[in-house]
């Protein structure tokens, strides 16, 4: 059985839910990105400087090197926008979702919600090891496991012929 053949086995409800999950995560990424695009003063400096955990030094290194920081800001802002738009439209979805996982993993690693770590940025909830970033990462992994842009999404037009 081919992969795509298998896809067609989703029930309507399953397909609908998968697409909704994809679109809503895409919406979240797109908004986070656009907010930063329209705020000329936004910088990841403060967030990176507040990093904790075993990779903290790496993130602080990024923050304190002007050129790296500029690149990080640019990649983050436009990464969020493109990933978001891609996921909503179902365009280059595998790539978008994979990049999203990478980006969120960096956020998670810079601010791991481990016992004993305190952050300047106030959190809106209470987390231990599992936080919303981690759940969003897992949701994106789920989208990789259950692709759906071939059902509803522009990727449908690029669907390759199967042998």
């Amino acid at each position: 059985m081919t992969k795509n053949h298998h896809l067609r086995e989703y029930s309507t409800f399953q397909a609908l839910m998968l697409v909704l999950l994809r679109v809503s995560i895409g919406w979240h990424f797109l908004y986070e990105g656009l907010v930063k695009v329209f705020n000329p003063d936004w910088s990841s400096f403060g967030y990176l400087m507040d990093s904790k955990g075993i990779f903290a030094d790496v993130f602080k290194y990024m923050a304190t090197h002007k050129d790296i920081l500029q690149a990080v800001d640019l990649l983050n802002i436009w990464g969020l926008v493109l990933i978001g738009a891609g996921m909503i439209l179902g365009l280059f979805t595998r790539l978008s979702v994979s990049c999203g996982i990478l980006l969120l993993s960096l956020y998670y690693l810079s601010h791991p919600p481990l016992a004993g770590l305190q952050y300047i940025f106030p959190q809106e909830g209470s987390y231990l090891i599992v936080n919303k970033t981690l759940i969003e990462i897992i949701a994106l992994c789920l989208l990789l496991a259950f692709p759906n842009s071939h059902i509803a999404g522009i990727d449908r037009f690029f669907q390759k012929k199967n042998k």
Binding site: G26, L89, G153, F157
Partner: peptide, 15 residues
């Protein structure tokens, strides 16, 4: 195909 391919575009409009 066209309908399904563009099915999620309205979400972008809503956004």
């Amino acid at each position: 195909d066209v309908l399904k391919g563009f099915a999620t575009v309205p979400f972008l409009g809503a956004f």
